[in-house]
């Protein structure tokens, strides 16, 4: 029944940074620099936060082959800590975001150490269950505000002189954070460390036989992914001045899977494209209530049955180069 015919995310394998990827990156950066003058910046910021979240998730599924079904716990808990730090402790935004991100890293270390003890489907179920545990914790803990969440978080003044209350200023800060996260992932993927991750994805027993401690590599990748997801969550909480249960609940974990699947698992630019497509779609469907869930489900089914490479994966196949 089982044949190793098609493993998730086995689209890219080259090591050196190819020129077309650099060109695509410059194109993306230019687009984001110009976009806020044509598109509503708040929408763009939402898409960028989700794009970073999905890129972080993709680092695991696309390059190590680990499907985490609990990434909402990093997004959500980092958001809570960052919002709490900014509102209650009066932290400046840079420190608030940093403390949220650090929390996600610590949570990633603990949950990762547990989850990597099993592979494949079990890994997905374990991460989902751990995330549900965090959800219940956030539901019951005092500081999270239960069903209300933490509202009216001040955006504050970055580094003491950049006032973030202006949407356009905020946008460029979010863009800088996103690009930094994206470049870090880009660098990781093309580093020798990234090559070993891909080796684990393709054939873990063989990577072990070559002398690599695969558990260490998986754990480091997991923590990196959790940290970047936390960075996205912290930023999101500051941008929207809100941390709520939505961000820590399981549908959010499903959503990031969908974004990455739609954009292209194991492609560098896929999660970004997926985030923009899905966030726009949800924006237009928002008034239809439960239909959002149905449409998400339908996209899942279509992607899995006929569109497994995703948008960017298909483009990469057409131009015969990994993106």
């Amino acid at each position: 029944m089982v044949s190793p015919g098609y493993t998730i995310g086995s689209a890219t394998t080259t090591s050196a940074t190819p020129r077309h990827q650099v060109i695509a990156f410059i194109g993306m950066a230019v687009f984001f620099l110009v976009a806020p003058f044509f598109i509503y910046p708040v929408f763009l910021m939402k898409a960028l936060c989700f794009a970073l979240f999905a890129c972080a998730f993709n680092l695991l599924i696309g390059y190590v082959g680990l499907l985490s079904f609990g990434h909402a716990m990093f997004l959500g808990s980092a958001g809570y800590i960052s919002a709490h730090a900014a509102k209650v402790w009066g932290f400046p935004p840079e420190l608030a975001i940093l403390s949220g991100t650090a929390t996600a890293a610590a949570l990633g270390l603990i949950s990762g150490a547990l989850a990597i003890r099993r592979q494949g489907i079990y890994f997905a179920m374990i991460t989902l269950a751990l995330a549900q545990m965090i959800y219940f914790f956030c539901l019951q803990a005092k500081f999270t505000g239960g069903e209300d969440g933490i509202q009216q978080v001040p955006r504050g003044v970055l580094f003491g002189f950049i006032d973030l209350r202006n949407d356009l200023t905020m946008y460029f800060v979010v863009l800088a954070i996103f690009l930094a996260g994206f470049l870090l992932i880009f660098r990781i993927i093309h580093s020798p460390f990234g090559q070993i991750l891909k080796a684990i994805r393709e054939n873990e027993p063989r990577a072990i036989s070559l002398g690599y401690k695969t558990d260490h590599y998986k754990l480091i990748a997991f923590v990196l992914s959790a940290t970047l997801a936390g960075l996205a969550g912290s930023t999101k909480a500051i941008v929207f001045q809100l941390a709520s249960l939505t961000d820590v609940n399981w549908p959010m974990s499903g959503e990031v899977v969908l974004i990455t699947l739609l954009g292209g698992l194991g492609t560098i630019f896929g999660p970004v494209v997926g985030a923009f497509v899905l966030i726009s779609l949800e924006h237009y469907l928002a008034q239809l209530g439960a239909w959002v869930t149905i449409v998400q489900g339908i996209i899942f089914v279509i992607c899995v049955l006929t569109f497994r490479r995703g948008i960017v994966g298909e483009i990469a196949r057409l131009i015969k180069r990994p993106l």
Binding site: F69, A124, V257, L261, I294, Q296, G297
Partner: peptide, 24 residues
């Protein structure tokens, strides 16, 4: 014939559709 995880993703999608339809 594919990675087992695709089965998880497909059935997750079906769960979303079913639940959404009933909630509607």
């Amino acid at each position: 014939k594919l990675d087992h995880l695709y089965g998880l993703l497909l059935t997750f999608g079906l769960a979303l559709i079913t639940e959404g339809l009933f909630r509607n």
